[in-house]
Computed example of a mutant assay.
Amino acid sequence: MSQVLSVNGLTFRHSSKKRWLKKPEVFSLGPIDMQVIKGETIAIIGQNRSGKSLLAKMLAGAVEPDEGQIQLQEERYWSVKHRVARKKADITGIRMIFQHNSESINPGIPVGQILDEPLRLNSTLSESERKTLIGDTLVKVGLLREHIYFYRHMLSDGQQQRVSLAKAILPNPKVLIADEPFAALDPTIRSQTVNLILKLQKEMGLAFIFISHNLGIVRHIADRVIVMDKGQIIESGKTETIFRWPQHEMTKKLVLSYQSLIPQQTLRDPE
């Protein structure tokens, strides 16, 4: 097993402005330490405002931490101490899938142009090479090469999800990060998307980090689970260990809430 991502002492501090008759809100996250192995799936769970989405954004480079270091394989991806500039290889090494696919797809630009942009900016491929790669990637996520000519309004929710996935894997990343990627999908499309991600993960050796409130999916696909509360990692371990023998009170609360819903699940839904 090879380690692809290492996080050490990652910290974020935020203070909102004081409002009338209210004290300023202060939210701090970390310090966070975690390691990610090639090909594994890690789920980050917790209640609202636990800091899990913020952690995902910091790992993806969308939010700058105040302290700590993120290392992608042997390359330092981010370090506050040294203010290391991220290289193109580092930027494309970690990619993010968003919850609302329609918001990440420009309605006035065809799919082919949307997928071409990250390649044009972050690779030395020629136009014909990029077009071939885009077509191959669309097929890989279960679409047709002809979908390069489609606009957002011509795509179903499931197809939009696949376009977002294609955009994420095009630069051949090492780590995929997703914040509630299945929440807006109906059960059938959700099942298809879960299976597709597992297939791509196996084929490409991707590490997958995802944020979810759906503990059914977490138990179905995650190798390890990280539980967060108030900006801290309060418990982590192998998925079955967390579900069978939760230690922290918050983890027990989350697991019991999931178990109370099990009889309502359908056989077709992996939840």
Rank of each mutant, 00 (worst) to 15 (best):
L165R: 12
I148W: 13
D223E: 08
V175D: 03
G112E: 05
I217Q: 02
D186G: 12
M96G: 08
D186N: 11
H100Q: 15
A222W: 00
N106V: 06
G112M: 07
K199N: 11
A222R: 01
A183Q: 05
K202I: 12
G216S: 04
R224F: 04
L206A: 06
P181R: 07
F98L: 14
Q192E: 15
K140G: 05
L165H: 12
G135P: 01
E103K: 10
I226A: 00
T124L: 13
G142Q: 08
P173F: 06
I197W: 03
I134F: 08
L125D: 15
I197A: 02
V227N: 00
Q160Y: 07
I189S: 04
E129D: 14
A222V: 01
R145S: 15
Q113V: 10
R224K: 15
S212L: 01
N106Q: 02
T132S: 14
Q201N: 12
K167W: 05
S191K: 15
I197P: 03
L215C: 00
R219Y: 12
I221W: 02
A184N: 13
A178T: 09
F182G: 07
V225M: 00
R224H: 13
A178S: 10
P118A: 10
I177C: 06
I105C: 10
I197Q: 04
D157E: 14
V163M: 07
L206M: 07
M228W: 00
E180Y: 08
D136G: 01
R162M: 06
L125V: 10
D223M: 03
F208E: 04
A168Y: 06
Q159W: 09
F150K: 12
S126D: 10
A207V: 01
Q161K: 03
L176C: 11
Q192W: 11
V163Y: 06
I114P: 09
L185Q: 07
K202L: 15
I148F: 11
K199W: 06
F208Y: 15
I94P: 04
G205E: 08
L143D: 12
R190A: 03
I114Q: 13
V111T: 14
T193M: 14
V194D: 09
I221E: 02
L138K: 01
K202H: 14
T132N: 12
I177F: 06
L115P: 08
I94E: 04
L170V: 10
L200S: 03
I221T: 08
M204H: 10
K202Y: 02
M154Q: 14
I148Q: 11
P110T: 08
K131G: 01
V163F: 07
V218G: 00
Q192I: 10
Q192D: 15
S128T: 14
Q99N: 09
M228H: 00
Q99R: 05
K199D: 15
E129H: 03
Q201E: 05
I211R: 00
E203S: 09
P107V: 03
